[in-house]
Amino acid sequence: MSAFRLHNTGDQVDLQTVMTILLQVLVGGLSLGVLYAIVALGYTMVYGVLQLINFAHSEVFITGGIVGYFVFHALQDSSMNGYLKLVLACLAAMIVSGALNVVIERLAYRPLRGAQRLVPLITAIGVSLILQDTLKFVVGLTGMFDLSVTLPKGFTSPLTKFAGIDITSLNLQVKDVILLVVATLMLIGLNLLVNHTRLGRAIRAVAHDRQTAGLMGIDSNRIISLTFLIGGALGGLGGVMYAMKYQALNAYSGMAPGMKAFSAAVLGGIGSIPGAMLGGIVLGWVETLLGVVSLFSALPGLHWLSYIKAEYKDLGGFLALILILFIKPTGLLGKSSTEKV
């Protein structure tokens, strides 16, 4: 975190520097948060329709990242427009991850539909492990363990101006803004889909009561497949965004962010779509803030903050989760519902 530096002149701390750091947290946390949010949606939508925690989603997510790597790699020397390359990477990742998620549901979860809840849960963990090793094999074909992503030219350039205002101090690169814009558009699109279309109404109906939905003419298996398709595609897109943000990934990279995205879904209230979005953003902010909070130890009376090192940011995220669940067990936007039998 050498990017952040606070001018400490005795007890005099530069207020403007503090504001800059907070602004960096706001923007950086938001871009991390929307990334968590689009992955969290995959967990929450599947939970909504099946009351199943799809542990394989972290692999579905990183599959998207790996597909993204291959697309960027294949087009490395092409003179194609960088944004077009990105669009292709996103489309390919969304198709592969979406299809993968549908296949997982069809083969692993649907045959267990009538079983008690623990059975598909254990299956989900099993699918996650199988996918990890499959991905390791696929990544291994490149002869490397860690893939380093070559982004199109210009994506890593620093941003200096926005609407005529100098924003060099925000420490942003073009790719951060791309991530923010793409993910936000996806969240808005999904909201429209769920709240204002027939498919969305059908998804909400199946989530509430599969049998009644069926008696209103809705083929719930079809809706469940489509939910896995949408959740998987969002996960795949998240994978490309992850690959773009960190520019390095391997077959196991899905686990940590997957876990956090899942936490974000729980934080926002599992099963709630706006909850997953809010949970992701809150988690992104908390984590980012904790990553830089030690810098404020230069402020008078806050020297103890120097003990909160950036390495503890994950811990902080999960502490926030526990704290919020302690106060509101159903999550930020979760509704308390009676257990359905």
């Binding site: 027939r198 059908a202 909400r204 509430h208 009561d209 009644t212 209103m216």
Partner: peptide
């Protein structure tokens, strides 16, 4: 009664209409 509680009266009916669209 098995209405969908998160939906408005109108949305509940639109849901039923889906099968004919």
């Amino acid at each position: 009664i098995r209405l969908f509680p998160s939906m408005t009266a109108e949305e509940n009916i639109m849901l039923g209409r889906g099968v004919r669209l």
